[in-house]
């Protein structure tokens, strides 16, 4: 047998590439990011530009997806809305992951009273249903995009902390860590070279899927008026604006919902694909 010279990363990519759905999801997410970045260029109109004469215009060459009550171009607002949704998804996950992984790593690697303290803290934390926590935080901090992101981020911390702790606890017991100790590696080297790489797989999968969940949560907060504030477009808020005109202008709530669904679906598909590629053993 010839030794495999491919690096882990390439091997991983080859695994992922086999999963057609995951590749589609990756492409979708890249497109979504591009749309968010290029919204000012792509959008035919500024998102807040009103054309009162064109209230509830049907889709036409002027307004590809029609216009809303104030005559704003729906397509432009959907394109701009990608920014808010992605921001909510990515930044809140980043907050949650950084804080959660730090807490979990501390608890898992050192154990003892630190572990105990952090775990009791998480017990309290998790006794509140996550969505209730998000709603409470977002409302008390005051409705805005920034506060919604903070609320969702803070609400998602315990999951990461527990996952990191659990993974580290399993990894810590593995023989290769003992082997590293036996050759006198320092704590820092063990953590950086052995513990973290071996914990990454479940965390990466979780982070990917969580971006989707946070987009969902963000849309929910915006829907009940606790997220992005008018006139900035956000998919959840757009659905909310259109909720009372279901009878006559259904498409106004349909399109933003589809946007949310596709983004979240892409995150979930990519997460599934990553899990299979990182840990083929789990592949069903």
């Amino acid at each position: 047998m010839k030794p495999k010279k491919e690096s882990q990363l390439i091997e991983f990519w080859l695994q992922l590439r086999k999963n057609k759905l995951a590749v589609v999801a990756l492409v979708l997410l890249v497109l979504l990011v591009l749309v968010a970045i290029l919204a000012p260029v792509l959008a035919p109109y500024p998102y807040a530009e009103m054309h009162p004469e064109d209230s509830y215009a049907p889709s036409s060459s002027k307004y590809l997806l029609g216009s809303d009550k104030l005559g704003r171009d729906v397509l432009s607002r959907l394109l701009w809305g990608a920014r808010q949704s992605l921001e909510m998804g990515i930044i809140s996950v980043a907050i949650a992951a950084v804080v959660g992984i730090f807490l979990g790593a501390l608890a898992g690697y050192y154990g003892g009273w630190k572990d105990n303290l952090i775990m009791r803290f998480l017990d309290v934390y998790e006794s509140m249903p996550m969505m209730l926590l998000c709603i409470t935080l977002a409302a008390i901090l005051g409705p805005s995009l920034r506060n919604a992101i903070i609320a969702i981020g803070v609400g998602s911390v315990p999951g990461y902390a527990r996952l990191t702790r659990a993974t580290i606890l399993t990894v810590r017991e593995k023989e290769y860590i003992e082997a590293a100790r036996a050759i006198n590696s320092s704590d820092a080297i063990i953590i950086v070279k052995h513990v973290i790489p071996n914990c990454m797989a479940p965390l990466i999968v979780d982070i990917t899927m969580n971006v989707g969940n946070c987009i969902l949560a963000g849309a929910g907060l915006s829907y009940i008026g606790l997220g992005v504030q008018a006139p900035v477009p956000e998919w959840g808020a757009m659905i909310s604006e259109a909720r009372n005109i279901l009878r006559d202008h259904f498409s106004l709530s349909l399109y933003p919902g589809i946007c949310v669904m596709i983004s979240v679906l892409a995150c979930n598909l990519l997460g599934d694909g990553l899990r299979d590629a990182l840990d083929p053993r789990l592949k069903n």
Partner: peptide
């Protein structure tokens, strides 16, 4: 099930309202 987990619940609720209610 993937589609279902990816849908915002409140949006699905609106779809239901539209179809069954309206």
């Amino acid at each position: 099930s993937l589609i279902a987990v990816s849908m915002p619940g409140f949006w699905f609720a609106l779809l239901l309202i539209r179809y069954f209610g309206v």
